[in-house]
Design a protein around this nucleic acid. Sequence first.
DNA 1: ATGAAAGCGCTAACAA
DNA 2: TTGTTAGCGCTTTCAT
Lengths: 348, 348
Amino acid sequence: MYDVAEQAGVSIATVSRVYRNPDSVRPGTRDRVLQAARGLGYVPSGNARGLASRSTGVLGLCFPDYADPDAEASAESDETDAAEMMLYSDEIIRGMERAARRHGYALLIAASLAGGPESLVAKVAGRVDGFAVLARTVPTEDLEVISRRLPVVMLAGPREIDHLDHIEVDNAAGQRELTRHLIADHGYRRLAFVGGEPDSPDAEARFRGYQAACRESGLPVPDQPDLRAEMTQAEGRRTAAALLARGGEPPEAVLFANDQMAVGALQALERRGVRVPGDIAVTGFDGIPLSRLVRPALTTVRQPTRHLGEQAVELLVRRLADREREPVSLMLPVTVTRRASCGCPGQD
Amino acid sequence: MYDVAEQAGVSIATVSRVYRNPDSVRPGTRDRVLQAARGLGYVPSGNARGLASRSTGVLGLCFPDYADPDAEASAESDETDAAEMMLYSDEIIRGMERAARRHGYALLIAASLAGGPESLVAKVAGRVDGFAVLARTVPTEDLEVISRRLPVVMLAGPREIDHLDHIEVDNAAGQRELTRHLIADHGYRRLAFVGGEPDSPDAEARFRGYQAACRESGLPVPDQPDLRAEMTQAEGRRTAAALLARGGEPPEAVLFANDQMAVGALQALERRGVRVPGDIAVTGFDGIPLSRLVRPALTTVRQPTRHLGEQAVELLVRRLADREREPVSLMLPVTVTRRASCGCPGQD
DNA sequence: ATGAAAGCGCTAACAA
DNA sequence: TTGTTAGCGCTTTCAT
C-alpha cells in the first residue's frame, strides 16, 4: 500500500479510500491509484483491513464431517453414499452462500470434529464476523466461550445454549403428518419405522412424530423404531432386506428416517421383486432432489434446507446490527410431498 | 489477549505460545492461561494472527453463480434445476474442503461474477493464502494482478494465464470414447449431439470429441451440434422434444453435453412413450450421482470432480511450499460409465 | 521457560 | 479532497 501510494503520488489514506469508498476520491487521483495498484500487483490485505476495522466481511459455517478426510476413496459405492449424505450440508452451504453474498459477505466453511484450542472451529471463529453451527459439530463448551465474543446461530438441533439464536426444523410435525396420511388416507395399519442412531436429534424427533400419529390413530405405539441404522443408502438397502427377512407378516408401509435410506430401500426392494407401493409403501424424509427422480418417486417430507441456510445468515446479519436483541428461536415448517411411493397417484 | 495474560500472570508472548505451540510452555502455566482465556471468553483474532504471521491458514474457491441470489425462489422446478446444476460446484467444494482440512486449512468460498476493486474476488484474494478459480468466473485481468501476489490455480477450463497452475478434465477424449462405443459396440449410425452454449469450453471440447469419433468411424462429421441449449434439465426436456419433432428419421442415439440435460430428456421421452434405449439411446456427461439413479440408468462419462477439488488444494499447498516451481498443468482423465440408457446391460 | 519490544498493513479520526 | 497519526491484536526475534 505504501508503494502504491508513493507511485501514485498520494498518501496511504487515499489509497485506502480508493478501495473503501471510491467516490470520496477525485476520479483523476483514483485512476492514478488504481493504475499504480495494477502495476504493482497490489492486493489489499484482508487481515490488516479486518484488524483495523474490527470486522471481516466473512460469515462462517461449521458442518459435520461425514467423510473421513484421511480415508482414501475406497469403493465407489462408499464414495457415492458419502456424497448423498452430504447433500444436506451442501444445500445449507448453498443457501448461506447466496444469502451471504446478497449481504456482501463471503462464506468460510469447515467440517469440524475435534474441539480444543487448535481446532478448526477456533480458526473459523477468529476469522469471521459470526457463524452458524450445524447441530453436534462443535463441543458445547467451545461454543459457550466463542459465543460470548461473536454471534453464533445453532442450526437444526436442540438449542444447547440458550442465549444463542437458533433455527430448527419441525421434524416431529412433519413425520406425524406423513404418518397420519399413510394411516388415514391410505388405510395402512401395519407400519414399520426405520430410525437413525439414537444420538441424532432429527431422527429421534421424527420417531416421536411417528409415535404421535400412531397414538392419535389408535394404533399400537412402539417405544423404539423397528430398526435403527446409519442414515445411508447402503444401510437403507440392508434394513429393507432385514425387514423382509423378519418373520411374520411384512409391513404395508415402511417409513424411513431420511431419503437416503428410503432410496436404498427402493433399490433393494426392486431387486427382490417387491413392488412399491403395490406390495409395500415406502417413505423418506428430507426431500432431497433425488427423491423426485427415483422410480417410484419418493413420498417424503420436504425440509426447507435452503431456507435454513438463508435464515441463518439473516439472523447473523441482524444480530451483527444489534447485539442486544433478544435471542430468537425459529421453527421452520416442513411440508409433506406426496408422490408415488406411498400409493398416491404418480405426478412426477 | 492482554487481559488473558494479566489474569494468568504471564506476558502476552506466553499466551501466544499456548495457542501456537503448547508444548513450549510449562503445563502449569499453560493451564492457567487456558483457564483465564475460558473465563474471559477469549477468541484469538485470526486477523491479527494473519497480519503478524503473513499467512491465513485459509484457501479459497471462486465458483460461478448459477442462481441469481436476488431472484426470489420462483417455480419449484427452476429451483431444482439450479440445484442440479450446482452439483458440480458442490462436489468441487467438498473435494477442496476435505483436502484443505487434511492440510489444516479452512475453505473460503464465494460465487463471483463481477470484477473490479470491490468485488468478492478481491475480498477472497485478500483473505486467503491461495485460491482456486473455476473457469469463467473471474475476469482475467483481475487474476493477472492477483496471481502476482498469491498462488492461483485455474480449474476446468482453458489456462488463460500461463504462469498459473492449471487443472483440466479431458472432455474431448471422454466424449470421443463414448461416441466410439455407441458407434462401434452398438452399431448406431444416426447420432445426434445436443451441445451447450458456444461459450462453454467444456461443452465445446465434448463436441470436438464427438466430431473426432464420427470422423474416425467414417460417419459424416457435423460442424455444429444438432442443437444447443443451456445445460439444464428443463432444456434437456425441451431439446428432446425438439429432436423428436424434427422431420425425417429420428436419431438412434442422442448424446447430451451433460447429465442434467440427459436426465431431462429421459423424462420427456418417457412421457411421450419413447423407450430408452429401445427406441433411442441416450447418454450424458459428468457422472453426477443422479445419473445412476434415474431409470434407465444413464450411460455417461464420469468426471473426477472430487479429485479436481483435491488436486487443486494439492497444487496450492505445493506452490505455497515453493513459489519457484514450474507451473503445472494437469489433465485429469475421465471414464466412460456404461449403463442401461445406451443399450448396455443394466447393472444398476 | 518466559518477557520485552518491534512491527505486520490497514482504517478512522482528526487536521489541513 | 487529501494527509497525518495512532492503534487494531497478534507473532517473532532477541534477551533473560
